[in-house]
């Protein structure tokens, strides 16, 4: 009996989360794909055809015939969408690089900090991650506004004569992304630097490398797994970011997350939004698999 019970227990440990994620995470993507091939309709749900088990097999086959790639053709023909994708990728790449350049010295310094204060520093980096994303983005509005705190500060100092226009430009988006995603970059780099054997850099210096050379030849290459994980953690969500371009960006800012949101909430065009989402997913599927692979490998090493 107990053996039987434990076998069931072992099975359930896998099956319950597996089924849950399949139903609520994986299956929806197929629905998105299906709807992206449908037509818009003024109905509820606002698309055609609607599959129904009552149709029988012949009915479903007939309806499959009604699916079309018209939405994708539309996306390809409208420069708005292509530009939005390209501009999202560009913004994500630039912000990822900037985030890396800011995060690396922080992570490096944290890893070199006295062991007694490291947990505190770590907590200080994680803490903003626990506070609302929306709030942290919102906080920047008051700072970046033309009459905002940054401009007041710079005007008082006499650095500038007239207010800088930052809010509602791409600059604000870069600041927003770098700020919001900084902890995601710091943490994996820190953890890869922190577990590094300090004697490796000493060995490099012993063999004639200056401290700077030792950093580039030994420390940095060995922290690459953390750098890659951090870049993925910033880049992938940044491509589809909505809140930051919506609150900090201007009307001319094109980002695909915002486009999708507008198609869905304002235009109520579900099939088009589904098509936008499908393509976004296709763009991101390679980096996501890359990330998963790196993550799984890192966990494997921990064993």
């Amino acid at each position: 009996m107990s053996k039987f019970g434990s076998a069931i227990f072992n099975r359930l440990v896998i099956i319950i989360p597996y089924v849950w994620l399949t139903v609520f995470f994986l299956a929806p993507f197929f629905i998105v794909l299906r709807i992206s091939l449908s037509e818009t309709a003024i109905a509820m749900p606002p698309y055609l055809p609607v599959f129904n088990l009552a149709d029988g097999i012949s009915g479903i086959v007939e309806k499959i015939g009604q699916l079309s790639t018209a939405n994708y053709e539309f996306l390809a023909s409208d420069a708005l969408y292509t530009n939005a994708y390209l501009s999202s990728l560009r913004i994500a790449v630039v912000s990822t690089i900037v985030t890396l350049m800011i995060a690396y010295p922080i992570a490096y310094s944290m890893a070199k900090a006295p062991t007694s204060i490291r947990p505190t520093l770590l907590m200080l980096v994680i803490l903003p991650f626990w506070t609302s994303f929306l709030i942290r983005v919102y906080a920047w509005i008051a700072i970046l506004k033309p009459e905002g705190l940054l401009n007041q500060f710079l005007l008082t100092l006499g650095v500038i004569d007239e207010p800088l226009i930052i809010l509602n430009t791409n600059w604000a988006i870069y600041i927003g992304i770098v700020y919001s995603y900084l902890p995601f970059m710091v943490l994996p780099i820190y953890s890869s630097l922190e577990k590094m054997d300090h004697s490796l850099t000493e060995a490099a210096q012993d063999l004639g490398c200056t401290p700077i050379c030792a950093f580039w030849r030994v420390t940095f290459p060995l922290s690459l797994p953390g750098v890659i994980a951090g870049c993925m953690l910033v880049f992938i969500p940044a491509v589809g970011e909505f809140v930051i371009p919506d609150l900090l960006g201007g009307s001319e800012t094109l980002m695909i997350g915002k486009t999708l949101w507008n198609e869905f909430n304002s235009n109520r065009d579900w099939p088009i939004s589904a098509a936008v989402a499908t393509i976004l997913l296709l763009i991101l599927v390679v980096p996501i698999m890359f990330f998963q692979h790196a993550q799984a490998k890192a966990d494997g090493e921990g064993k």
Partner: peptide
């Protein structure tokens, strides 16, 4: 004189071989 300019070399207890 910093370590990288000294004519001595060290074999580390952990070996400190560069894993990459």
């Amino acid at each position: 004189i910093p370590p990288y300019r000294r004519p001595v070399n060290m074999m580390f207890q952990s070996y400190a071989l560069f894993p990459h």
